[in-house]
């Protein structure tokens, strides 16, 4: 005959799990870490010759210590930077003073004129980090918008909605993220 086992009181179970819950609430963070991804260039090799880049292929962006922009030899504005960078990288009218294009065979796209333009970003030691990120953001946005446009035209969807790795690689090869940062220099003398 089965003996009757006394029932364990489960009334405090809720309290125990509440305690655990509050512990996790306090010790954890909810925010998803996100940011602008960049790849640093390897340290400069003093013996290597400086790469020969034509003037028309370089888009100069300077930020001074009072957060003013100097774009291609003129005072620039953060609000127009994105469009200027887009025009530079795409060169829709094949102008002489904007970067040249080279036909490249990209798997999935075939022969495609890839711009040889490079955006060169230079900042002062006194530039605020906020401004630097704004500039980086606008330049990234320019590349991303160009990728979106090409992706829509070729595959009918936004670049971020592409699923096949081959398509992603093709778009990335067609519109390279060519943002280069100059070797640091102390222009404004600020620290």
């Amino acid at each position: 005959m089965a003996r009757k086992v006394p029932e364990i009181n489960a009334g405090s179970m809720a309290d125990i799990s509440f305690l655990l819950l509050i512990f996790f609430l306090v010790t954890t963070t909810m925010d998803v870490d996100s940011g602008i991804v960049r790849r640093l260039p390897p340290p400069p090799d003093p013996t290597a010759p400086t790469p020969d880049v034509k003037e028309r292929n370089v888009f100069n962006v300077l930020v001074n210590k009072s957060d003013r922009l100097f774009v291609e030899g003129r005072w620039g504005d953060i609000r127009t930077l994105r469009d200027e960078a887009k025009e530079f990288l795409s060169n829709p009218q094949n102008r002489e003073d904007l970067p040249e294009k080279r036909m490249e065979n990209i798997p999935g796209l075939g022969e495609f004129p890839v711009s040889r333009g490079i955006i060169s970003l230079k900042n002062d030691r006194g530039t605020s980090y906020d401004m630097y990120i704004q500039v980086q953001n606008e330049l990234t946005a320019a590349v991303n918008e160009l990728r979106d446009e090409l992706s829509r035209q070729k595959f009918g969807v936004k670049f971020s909605d592409l699923r096949s790795q081959m398509d992603i690689d093709a778009i990335q090869a067609a519109v390279p993220m060519s943002i280069s940062e100059a070797e640091p220099e102390n222009i404004g003398g600020g620290k």
């Binding site: 870490d33 602008i36 790849r39 640093l40 390897p42 900042n123 030691r125 605020s128 990120i133 620290k191």
Partner: peptide
């Protein structure tokens, strides 16, 4: 200011930590 950030980035380049993320 960017000065200190630039120093950190130069240091990262020296040790070969090239993948960075500006949070």
């Amino acid at each position: 200011k960017m000065g200190i950030v630039t120093d950190v980035k130069q240091e990262l380049r020296k040790v070969g930590a090239f993948k960075i993320n500006y949070s």
